[in-house]
């Protein structure tokens, strides 16, 4: 079978056909194509430039720490045996946290305003999320891995912490509280 079996026909009286008129239109089409292509490509380059620039210059990176842990013994692992907030000698604050069905341990976290706070978290069961509502502190907590990231909360206040990854029938009640203490700058 070949193409001739499929009837290829001209546009029935639709106005624009091939021929002279078609060629004129063709030239204009090409011009518009070019303008648009370069414009769109420029926009894409700007986007990429912005992302790469902020990543490189401002060191803005999502939490990407690589450290593993056996989830089946995470609760007794020395790194996570006593969840809570500690002050390090250099003045920064460390929060060790377990995310498990269906609570964060500890459930309430108190950190000082205006100082870098490093969160270290893992899960002894399924995947959870850790999101401090009203901030951009947001990370996945996965069994077998340690999530680590550092944020500074400039303003004192109270924030709801929610689990934002489905973790079972109690997912929608899994929450905690973050209290940022200190005076407003």
């Amino acid at each position: 079978m070949n193409r001739s079996e499929a009837k290829v026909s001209e546009g029935e009286g639709r106005g624009v056909g091939g021929g002279e008129e078609g060629r004129g239109v063709g030239a204009r089409v090409e011009l518009y194509e070019k303008i648009w292509m370069w414009g769109a490509a420029g926009l894409v380059v700007v986007f990429i430039g912005a992302v790469v620039y902020t990543a490189a210059a401002g060191a803005v990176h999502p939490p990407s720490h690589v450290e593993t842990i056996d989830p089946q013994t995470a609760r007794t692992d020395p790194r996570f045996a006593s969840p809570g907030v500690t002050e390090r000698p250099d003045g920064t604050v460390e929060v060790v946290l377990l995310a498990q069905m269906y609570a964060f341990l500890p459930t309430e976290i108190r950190v000082p305003a205006g100082r870098p706070v490093t969160f270290r978290m893992t899960s002894p069961d399924v995947i959870h999320g850790f999101q401090v509502v009203g901030t951009n502190a947001n990370a996945m907590v996965m069994p077998g891995y340690v999530t680590e990231f550092t944020v500074t909360f400039p303003q004192p206040g109270e924030h709801l912490i929610v689990c934002n990854e489905y973790c079972g029938l109690g997912h929608h009640v899994m929450h905690g509280k973050l209290v940022v203490e200190g005076e407003a700058p």
Binding site: V52, P63, S64, V66, G129, T147
Partner: peptide
């Protein structure tokens, strides 16, 4: 926002 994956590869996929 996953742990265990280095930031450089995340950036490459962003591009």
């Amino acid at each position: 926002l996953d742990p265990g994956i280095p930031a450089g590869w995340k950036l490459a996929h962003t591009v």
